[in-house]
Each structure stands twice: as C-alpha cells, then as structure tokens.
C-alpha cells in the first residue's frame, strides 16, 4: 500500500508571534517551527497502516526552503521519501491554491490513500484535505479517529462527530482521510531514524513539474485574500492579579471569597 501524508510546517505552539512589516504575515525569522499537530497524527496513522500491510509512506509538503526541517523530521519518524513543493510561485496561496498543487503532486504518485491533518494550527481553514479529494475526484472522510486495514478495495474508518458521537463508515480506495489529533500515540524519531533520514530521497518540485501553470497556484491562484493580520482587541478583559506569586494568589483567594463568593 502506498500512502501520501501531507504535512505542513507551522510555528511552534508557544512561539511568540510577531507580525511582519507587510501587516499580512507572521515574521518567521528565528521562530521555532514544528510539524502541524494533526499532521503528526496523520503521519503516525500512515506509518501504522504501511507497517501493517507492507508499503511506503511518502511525505508531501508545500513550503519554502526552511520547511526542509519538517521534512527531515517526517523522514526520521519513518517516511520512506518526501516531496517538497518549493517554488516562489507556490507562496502565499489560500487553501484552494495549496490544495491544487498538493493534488497534482498526489496524482503523480497514484497512492491508495492520502492522509492530511484535520486542520492547520496557523491558517486553520480545515479545508485542504477535502479540497484536494475533490480535485482528485476521490471520496473523503474527515475527523478520523481510527482506521482499519483495507479489504476488498474499501477502507473502514471511525469519524468523530460532535458532542461525543462517533460513526463507523467505509469508503472505496483511493481516498483522502483527514486525521484528528489523538488517533494514536505519536512515535518519537529514534537516533537511527534521524541518521537514516539523511540518506532518504527528497524530491523538490515546482509548478511546471506538476503540469501546472504558475498563474494558478500560490498568490496568483487565490480565491480569498488576507488583507490584514493583527493582534485582537480583547473584548472582556480579565482582572489580572499582579505582584509576586504570594501577592497574586492571596488576591485571587480574596476575590473568590468576597467578590465571586465561590470559596
């Protein structure tokens, strides 16, 4: 079985975010990054499937040179090889433009399964996986919490619904699944994995390699445009209890007793 897993590089969780001078993006210089959280789970799910059935996991990422770090990590975790969509024409796309490029790359690989994360921690569209499924003409299922080994050309998966409900469904292969965080515990890269990653293939592709016109990807291919990125004005402001720890905690207990009357 061949599985393509889409991974995105995003700023680390607790990273301090500074808005760039253009007012439309985050200044990434010196910001630590990681593989998007649900993509780490997608990678884990892909590796388990490939280990169970025999086969390979191909990591697929669209992003600049710096994103090589995320690719190396995916290779160290166990992906067999990687495809890096890296070209100035891919920059600043929306979900639609990014999905177009990812779909073209996935089509060339002709896998049985494409896995994506449910949602990116930076843009947060929760669209890309399903967009690329439609571009490929394949069925898709979202919010996946369990996957069984395929049988007879179909795959059985458990979807998370709202308020504690779940659903078992099947769909024919090839298909796209978007993986929800928590599906399986994510493995760590071993030292051996990290060493081995250096020898693995990392193919760098641009739009022409995918048979795409540079004018239909990245900023040029956008359907929606970001005009301004800014720090939100807080609506209801909490009363911040300052001072040293002793003062702040004493003030909090006092508020809880006298104002909120909950202690």
């Amino acid at each position: 079985m061949k599985i393509v897993v889409c991974i995105k590089q995003v700023p680390e969780r607790d990273a301090r975010l500074r808005i760039a001078l253009d007012g439309k993006s985050v200044d990434t210089t010196g910001v630590a990054t990681e593989i998007n959280e649900s993509d780490q789970y997608a990678l884990e799910a892909g590796l388990r499937l490939a280990e169970g059935a025999g086969g390979e996991v191909v990591a697929l990422l669209l992003g600049p040179d710096q994103a090589e770090e995320a690719i190396r990590r995916a290779l160290a975790m166990g992906a067999a090889r990687a495809i890096h969509l890296n070209d100035a024409a891919f920059q600043d796309g929306d979900a639609s433009a990014t999905a177009k490029a990812l779909a073209a790359a996935a089509r060339q690989e002709a896998p049985d399964l494409v896995l994506t994360g449910l949602q990116s921690d930076d843009a947060g569209w929760s669209q890309t996986g399903v967009l690329l499924a439609e571009r490929l003409g394949w069925p898709s299922a979202t919010l996946i919490m369990e996957i069984e080994q395929p049988a007879d050309g179909r795959i059985k998966v458990k979807r998370e619904l709202e308020s504690g409900w779940f659903q078992w469904i099947t769909l024919p292969l090839p298909a796209v699944l978007t993986i929800q965080s928590g599906i399986y515990p994510v493995r760590y890269a071993t030292l051996k994995g990290i060493m081995g990653a250096k020898k693995k293939e990392m193919k760098k592709l641009g739009p022409l390699d995918l048979g795409l016109d540079p004018g239909e990807v990245g900023a040029a291919g956008r359907r929606v445009e970001l005009h301004r990125l800014y720090v939100p004005v807080k609506t209801a402001q909490a009363e911040i209890l300052g001072g040293d720890v002793a003062t702040a905690t004493a003030a909090l207990v006092d508020r809880l007793q006298k104002e909120a009357k909950v202690l």
Binding site: D94, A95, S96, A99, L118, G124, W125, S126, Q127, T128, G129, V130, L131, A133, E134, R135, S140, A141, T142, L143, E160, L161, E162, R222, R223, V224
Partner: peptide, 22 residues
C-alpha cells in the same frame, strides 16, 4: 460544524468558489 467541514470544501472545489471558513 463538523459536518460542514466534511463536505463544503468539496462543494467549493467543484464550483471553483472561494470559501472563507470559521
């Protein structure tokens, strides 16, 4: 909703429409 995440991006791609979510 979770259901909208599951099918509306597909509609957007089928119609080549822009979709601003969330």
């Amino acid at each position: 909703t979770y259901q909208v995440r599951d099918w509306v991006p597909r509609l957007a791609a089928a119609l080549d429409a822009g979709f601003v979510s969330d």
